[in-house]
């Protein structure tokens, strides 16, 4: 059974000719953890707002749990949880006041679904009398998640929950999502961090309103067209220039401590040619190794082909 279905959704704003969301179709199975991966301005928020009935699409149709996002908006509002990109809780209310307020407006109580949020809430409970405005980024995020979960939604929409959050809090957050998935909640999450993609079951790569690819993370990686090599030498920025001007280079981008390169013509011999080319350019400590591409490599590749 599919919990979320989008068919040819188009969204434009005002007189702007370029589409914020350009003919997007995908579907999410019940209980699935689905990631919408793309940079800011790719259209992730617009898609989420349409699915949560906050925006109307210009054309196309979409259903959440079988309800139409335009006609049946009241039904959808009863069954979804939504955490917008900006921290959107009341800064002048305490943790507890925020939570019980959101519980009441969803016609429930903190007690009723406490088991769902227990793991998360226990981490912030010691500060429950502190006002939300005085919390750190990670704690705000946990509180927001509790508030979005308090009515035990069937589908949870998390719009960039990890933006601006440090690596440790991000990791913790994804662990929480994995636990929630076990409760059978369908989760749609958007993020600009490509490294988070591998934690989803299915991902859609999105850029400029268009879906570049939809697949499982491993499916996306295995569809990468070329063999990818990681190259390293002592002087990395000069290395990048030299690699980019190498005649057989297909693409070359820096990736942390390595540069990732794919070749137009790929063979053992070509790698040796590359090695000697770099030696001639007086690079030292040259390392070239074949690697499995990351989601980010795949994203860059797709972007280049657009």
């Amino acid at each position: 059974m599919k919990d979320v279905v989008l068919q040819n959704i188009v969204k434009t704003y005002g007189t702007d000719e370029s589409c914020a969301v350009d003919n997007v179709s995908f579907s999410v199975e019940k209980g699935e953890l689905f990631g919408l991966i793309g940079p800011d301005g790719a259209g992730k928020t617009s898609i989420f707002r349409m699915l949560t009935t906050l925006l109307l699409p210009n054309s196309g149709s979409a259903q959440v749990c079988g309800y139409d996002i335009v006609k049946d908006y009241t039904s959808i509002r009863n069954i979804v949880g939504y955490m917008p990109g900006k921290f959107s809780l009341y800064q002048d209310l305490t943790i507890e006041e925020n939570l019980s307020f959101f519980a009441t407006i969803f016609n429930t109580t903190i007690k009723e679904n406490y088991n769902l949020i227990r793991d998360i809430y226990e981490q912030i409970e010691p500060f429950k009398d502190r006002r939300a405005g005085n919390l750190s980024g990670g704690m705000k995020q946990k509180l927001a998640l509790c508030c979005a979960l308090i009515h035990k939604p069937e589908v949870l929409f998390l719009d960039e929950p990890t933006t601006g959050v440090d690596a440790v809090s991000r990791k913790e957050f994804w662990e929480m999502l994995a636990r929630l998935k076990k409760e059978g909640i369908t989760i749609l999450v958007s993020t600009p961090y490509m490294d988070e993609a591998s934690l989803c079951e299915n991902i859609a790569l999105i850029q400029s309103g268009k879906i570049l690819d939809i697949n499982t993370p491993s499916g996306i990686i295995s569809s990468y067209p070329n063999q990818l090599y990681a190259v390293k030498a002592t002087h990395m920025s000069r290395l990048l220039h030299d690699l980019q001007s190498f005649t057989n280079t297909n693409s070359c981008f820096s990736f942390g401590e390595f540069h990732h390169i794919s070749l137009q013509e790929d063979s053992e011999k070509q790698i040796q040619t590359l090695h000697s080319y770099l030696q001639q350019a007086k690079h030292t400590n040259i390392q070239i190794q074949a690697i499995v591409p990351s989601i980010e490599d795949c994203f860059i590749e797709r972007m280049r082909n657009e």
Binding site: G38, P39, D40, A42, E160, T163, G164, P192, M194, Q207, S237, F253, S254, E296, F299, I300, M303, R304
Partner: peptide, 24 residues
Amino acid sequence: DEPTGGVDPITRRQFWDLIYEASD
């Protein structure tokens, strides 16, 4: 201060090219 937050991966690298250039 977090200059590349939310920027697409290609632009992010172009941004770092600018940083390198400034550093050079």
